[in-house]
Design a protein around this nucleic acid. Sequence first.
DNA 1: GGATAATCGAGACGGTACGTCTTGTCTTAAA
DNA 2: TTTAAGACAAGACGTACCGTCTCGATTATCC
Lengths: 223, 223, 223, 223
Amino acid sequence: MAATRPVGPTVAEQPAPAKRRNENARLAVLNAADDLLVERGFDGLTIEGIAARAGVAKQTIYRWWKSKVDILYDNLVLDAEDALAWPEPAPGASYTVAELRGYLHRFALFLGTAPAGRVLQALLGHAQLDRRTFDLLHTGFLGELTARDTERVRQCLAGLVPGAGGQDGAGAGAAEASALLDALLAPLYYRALLARGPIDPALVDAALDEQLALALARSTPGV
Amino acid sequence: MAATRPVGPTVAEQPAPAKRRNENARLAVLNAADDLLVERGFDGLTIEGIAARAGVAKQTIYRWWKSKVDILYDNLVLDAEDALAWPEPAPGASYTVAELRGYLHRFALFLGTAPAGRVLQALLGHAQLDRRTFDLLHTGFLGELTARDTERVRQCLAGLVPGAGGQDGAGAGAAEASALLDALLAPLYYRALLARGPIDPALVDAALDEQLALALARSTPGV
Amino acid sequence: MAATRPVGPTVAEQPAPAKRRNENARLAVLNAADDLLVERGFDGLTIEGIAARAGVAKQTIYRWWKSKVDILYDNLVLDAEDALAWPEPAPGASYTVAELRGYLHRFALFLGTAPAGRVLQALLGHAQLDRRTFDLLHTGFLGELTARDTERVRQCLAGLVPGAGGQDGAGAGAAEASALLDALLAPLYYRALLARGPIDPALVDAALDEQLALALARSTPGV
Amino acid sequence: MAATRPVGPTVAEQPAPAKRRNENARLAVLNAADDLLVERGFDGLTIEGIAARAGVAKQTIYRWWKSKVDILYDNLVLDAEDALAWPEPAPGASYTVAELRGYLHRFALFLGTAPAGRVLQALLGHAQLDRRTFDLLHTGFLGELTARDTERVRQCLAGLVPGAGGQDGAGAGAAEASALLDALLAPLYYRALLARGPIDPALVDAALDEQLALALARSTPGV
DNA sequence: GGATAATCGAGACGGTACGTCTTGTCTTAAA
DNA sequence: TTTAAGACAAGACGTACCGTCTCGATTATCC
């Protein structure tokens, strides 16, 4: 999975010292963890197992990661970077509903299909059981993702209802955008985590259309 | 749900006549597991710890439960029996939107606040990590809960839009009810699992009003 | 093994109370213990195993025996009663060297061959590891056996060297007899316990001839 | 015996280069086992107990020993190395009866007194109950001891009766020596295992004198 | 272009918990 | 009252991983 990505720094990357780190070992560990998660599940994923599969000493793993959760997190960041990117809008233009729709479809695909979403599912699951994992996920990956996407949804909304939002400033628009994003994502997470199946693209479209209609209705109170 | 069963354990049901089980030991185990889950979290919850806290031999636990998941599951069933009951409707009457609203509020409370919902959160989390747990939860607790609630939501809908549903038979009404229930629960689960906070009652009302409006709009296409 | 012996009271038999004791259960336990000792060895012999094999409840065993050692002990007493008997001497006559020789051969056979001697070997082995077993064996079975045989050896000696022993009284003769018995048995136990093979009958004869020669030499100091 | 081996464990010899074994842990385990054997007896001696007493992890014990028997065996070898050594004979000279006598006294002391001989007694006892222990003892410790001592006894005999043995070659002398050694040891083992008391030094001398007289008588048939 | 220092593989180590087994006590229901 | 059946508290079994620790054997800079 991550074997094709060369090197780029990730979110959890150790800041400064990391002197002569062995890149082969790093990739071998990430791949081994990914493979073993699929093969044996989260509980069957052990540091010893990863070390053995990667042909690496346990100490090497403990030198660079604090736990198996951190290894999976690095994998998640790596995978999501490509899978959850938005296309660059035309210069000077802002994000559109069409782009939002495309992103939601990609998100649903990412969340609902192994092995890509398997890591996120596992981390979300473990976040229910472990405070540290929850914090890592929400101050890191999910936090950044949400911040980025909320802003882009805000742009979509602004493009859709030119007058709205401007009155109360960007802050008000952000709250609206945040609520809208939540409303759009809730059914997807619900589907992925509670029903555990691939997510029907129609569900994405239905949710988006529905929420946009509601948003429009709210923004034109007179009607 | 398990409301019809009298008292015994839900998992590991004895096929044979269930010889002389010690009720004190059973309750001590369930309580110890509950306490330890809150104190030490799911990973810190061990069979040895439960046995020690409950003053019970490990073998006694293994005799009646297959794993700590099964112990928590029994706790869940026990707790939910009271917390997630619907009030009995008037004789001859069916469930109403007001009762549905009340139930949703109780559900949100159950899901969002420790210690009651802590067990469900943990099991939902672990279900992401372990196939057996997922199956147990969905063929058991969640399956029964969903079946029961779907039917009651169907009755609410039927009462709300007298003509609708009747045309296509009860089957079509059930599908509609199922979708509505999903739409009502998704934001609650999203809130509880993703944001991990207590659920604002206003969220429940907003979701219900919104979905009812949409349902009404769908059922009167001419308008 | 003990199945053919009907009922007779043994040494370790509970003295008085034993009211409505089930004789079938008693024999089944003794036989099961014997069989399992041969099949699985002393460490593999468990109360649970005996109970299962005998079709008897554990409690029934604990009611009548204190441990598996006591069960084996009862078996030993039962078996030895026949195998280690001396033929009755002619009325008025005392035991002779020929009878002693015969007894030693029988003893060697008993000690050296399974399954008869297997129990005694096991108890002797366990007596090295457990004080209670040692005491049981020496105040009980071995003590009585030694007392009986010492007296008979004394009679043999008295018949062999008419004058000797009489001078110092029976006590001196008993000490001599005891030493002689030890000297005769030592090589047999050594062979059985240290080399663990069947005992060559020639070894018995050699030891007896040798010791008798020495005894004679000692009793006729002038020569 | 094991006198030629330098230091390491005797059982569980590492075929590979025996990686960095912790000598402190090894000694702590051996000592703890020794202490606990005396304190609690063989049955009360557990791997968990040894680990706790030695301040060592169970896994460390299982890494280097297969069972508590193997630990005791290592202790036996260690203790016997000093206690059962023969003094080096003068260069060019062979072992003498005086040296044999001294050795037998030391052997009797070793076998009859705790804690040194306690281990051997326990292993001899357990060898009656467990085939593996019997084999370990006889192909290992006892086998080497017997081979060594038989040869030395042969030298004693050869020195005593210059002509004898030479006629029939060393083989015949070895058989004689072996029988003599058995005859000397049998009463000691009998005393130690059957009567379980310290061995009277006079018993050693009596047995040696008696057996030497018999051996001399046999080697000079004319007299 | 060696010296030096961090990283690497390997794996021993003190621990904790696992799930199983047996102990000896107890309770129940049938005879 | 004894029996078969078996639940119970206790605790040892042997195994699996945990996270820390020492080893030499590579590297890869830096002097």
